[in-house]
């Protein structure tokens, strides 16, 4: 319990800033909707004349885009980007920071097993991610609902849940690496590198639903287009995401319990 509390306290301030940023970017972009809405009806017909390949590149589906929920699914992308960075940071720093800050021997000489330490840290990180998602939903759901007039609630909730799942995936990958690596001197280059690579791949390299590259980037696992069109996730990607999260966490335990940890 002490490790848990200590961990929450250590990340509280940074996490609060991240939560504001993630929520803020969605709110900011939704603010542009009213001015957009006025013109949009006229555009829709014209938009449908664009070649499908071109639309795919822009990551937009015409019929989706014409509604408030569709517009939101587009804004969400940038909240997902920031949220993923936050989660990757949490994961990469979770264990490795004890080594970098030279507190590892202090922590490990306490009468607590390594597995329990890891569990406390895991729970603390999950709480932070949960808090981020609660705040995000509390702010964005009413906002988007005010634009849709109460419709599409299920789709919006599904879209928002993809933030949670993406955060879990990026957290788990960072967590595993952080537990396995000898030493991670600084967290941000790793997390930014990982998330931005995935983001860039998803944004321009993926042009169709059958594209094999989709397996490489979590940003495609909970495709907003698919949610908007079908009101559900794609099963194979949802399963893949769950497997990845479990694998990451399991690997972290496996590595951390038997790892040689350097003391200063």
């Amino acid at each position: 319990m002490n490790v848990f509390k200590r961990e929450i306290k250590a990340v509280a301030r940074t996490s609060a800033i991240w939560i504001c940023a993630v929520t803020g970017v969605s709110v900011l972009m939704m603010m542009f909707y009213p001015s957009f809405e006025r013109d949009i009806a006229d555009y829709v017909k014209l938009l449908e004349n664009l070649p499908p390949a071109m639309r795919a590149i822009m990551g937009l589906q015409v019929q989706n885009f014409a509604s408030a929920a569709g517009f939101y699914s587009f804004c969400l992308l940038y909240a997902l980007l920031l949220g993923s960075i936050q989660a990757a940071n949490l994961g990469f720093a979770c264990v490795s920071k004890e080594v970098t800050m030279g507190t590892a021997d202090f922590l490990l000489t306490k009468p607590v097993s390594r597995a329990r330490i890891l569990t406390s840290k895991l729970l603390a990180s999950f709480s932070v991610i949960a808090a981020a998602n609660i705040v995000y939903n509390l702010v964005t759901v009413p906002l988007v609902m005010s634009f849709t007039g109460g419709g599409s609630l299920k789709k919006v909730l599904l879209l928002n849940a993809s933030l949670l799942f993406l955060q879990l995936i990026f957290f788990a990958s960072g967590f595993a690496v952080s537990a396995a690596a000898k030493k991670i001197k600084s967290v941000l280059p790793y997390s930014l590198g990982l998330v931005f690579m995935a983001f860039a791949l998803s944004a321009f390299a993926v042009t169709s639903r059958e594209d094999k590259l989709r397996y490489l980037t979590p940003f495609q696992y909970f495709s907003a287009e698919y949610v908007m069109a079908n009101g559900s996730y794609e099963t194979r990607f949802a399963v893949l995401a769950a497997v990845l999260v479990c694998l990451g966490v399991a690997a972290a335990y496996l590595f951390f319990i038997r790892k040689q940890i350097r003391s200063r």
Binding site: P189, L192, G193, F196, M197, F199, A200, A203, F204
Partner: peptide, 9 residues
């Protein structure tokens, strides 16, 4: 996106 990744680096 190339510029974005290079900027991060």
């Amino acid at each position: 996106y190339i510029a974005l990744v290079a900027a991060v680096h």
